[in-house]
Amino acid sequence: MDKNKKIEDVLNSLEGIKSTEANPFLYNRILSKIQASGKEYTPAKIIWLAAASFLLLLFLNISAIRKAMINKNGAVYQSENTVSGYNLINENPIQYN
């Protein structure tokens, strides 16, 4: 009986617990820690925007390079067509060089 009462007393010992005041110097310590980290924390939104811009730039660059390469290949193909189409292949045994 006494044991049960003691257990109940322990279990109920937090009733009426009061809020404790945090150390008044804690705020300054937090501020100096934030400032001592030497950099401003960048909000996540800005980080995502920067990443998205970088990816967009990368995509544009890759597509521009691919387009340029296709154009180059197309030009070669076109010039080959022109050479064979107009019978411009040199069949003369005389070499120019």
Partner: peptide
């Protein structure tokens, strides 16, 4: 010893 506990409950609260 939680600073917000009343004196009479300190011992029981420490056990808890």
């Amino acid at each position: 010893h939680h600073p917000g506990i009343a004196l009479e409950n300190k011992e029981n609260a420490a056990i808890l």
